[in-house]
């Protein structure tokens, strides 16, 4: 009898443990499937940067995205930022282009923790990479309305972990970033809306918890599946 009980406990443990791990991966898979569903997207965004005293700066940019791993961000205003571009390509290749210098610069891993053009997002945050490719996931909490996942980076990162809250529709609601000292340093909140067949983050707000500075990115217009050429995701286009 005792042996039977032990066997039952062991079988249950063996079944439950991989299921738990699989569930976190499955959730992350579903998040990726929803957030990267369009073949490509072109979005016009408005960024509002707010400092701790409530002073605001407004910037406008265009984001082109193709698949899960190609992204180009180009500022269109104000004048001092116009033309500044960030390009993220497969295999962790990232470039930044500053029109004043006329040359592109590959982003070294030491500077991936730097904030891009005064926003609250670092080059690492802006990298085009699916959650699944970027993180290992562990399910921390699950209830009727949401899942809470602990994500740890598969590669060298400025963050020790990210706590990702996902709603029952498998859309991210909130991401909390912890530094190497395990202090919560940044929080991203997402507001997803549906357009046609696709969900997209209409508003993303990034808040630096130390400086109380925030960046609110709102999508002004969006186009999906227009057949964006690979040429857009090139140094050539970035410099134009």
């Amino acid at each position: 009898m005792k042996t039977k009980h032990l066997l039952l406990v062991l079988i249950t443990f063996l079944l439950v443990m991989p299921l738990g791990a699989q569930t976190a991966d499955q959730i992350l898979d579903k998040v990726d499937q929803l957030t990267s569903a369009p073949k490509d997207a072109k979005q016009t965004i408005r960024m509002v940067l707010t400092d701790r005293n409530g002073r605001e700066q407004v910037r406008n940019a265009i984001i082109w995205q193709k698949g899960k791993d190609k992204r180009l961000i180009k500022f269109t205003s104000p004048a001092s930022y116009k033309g500044i571009s960030f390009l993220s390509l497969p295999n962790d290749v990232m470039y930044v282009y500053m029109p004043a210098y006329g040359k592109e610069r590959r982003i070294a891993s030491s500077v991936r923790n730097q904030k891009f053009a005064g926003t609250d997002l670092t080059y690492e945050d802006l990298q085009a990479k699916s959650y699944k490719d970027k993180y290992n996931a562990r399910l921390l909490k699950k209830d009727a309305n949401q899942f809470v996942l602990e994500l740890t980076s598969k590669e060298r990162s400025q963050y020790s972990k990210v706590i990702l809250t996902v709603n029952k529709n498998y859309l991210p609601v909130k991401a909390e970033f912890f530094n190497r000292g395990n202090q919560k340093v940044k929080e991203l909140t997402f507001n997803f809306v549906k357009s046609g067949n696709y969900w997209y983050a209409k508003v993303i707000t990034a808040k630096d918890l130390k400086t109380k500075h925030s960046t609110r990115m709102e999508v002004i217009s969006t186009q999906f599946d227009t057949g964006l050429s690979d040429n857009i995701f090139s140094i050539r286009f970035m410099k134009q």
Partner: peptide, 9 residues
């Protein structure tokens, strides 16, 4: 040439 070695550009 340009690149990075051990995180140093």
């Amino acid at each position: 040439f340009a690149g990075n070695i051990l995180g140093i550009g």
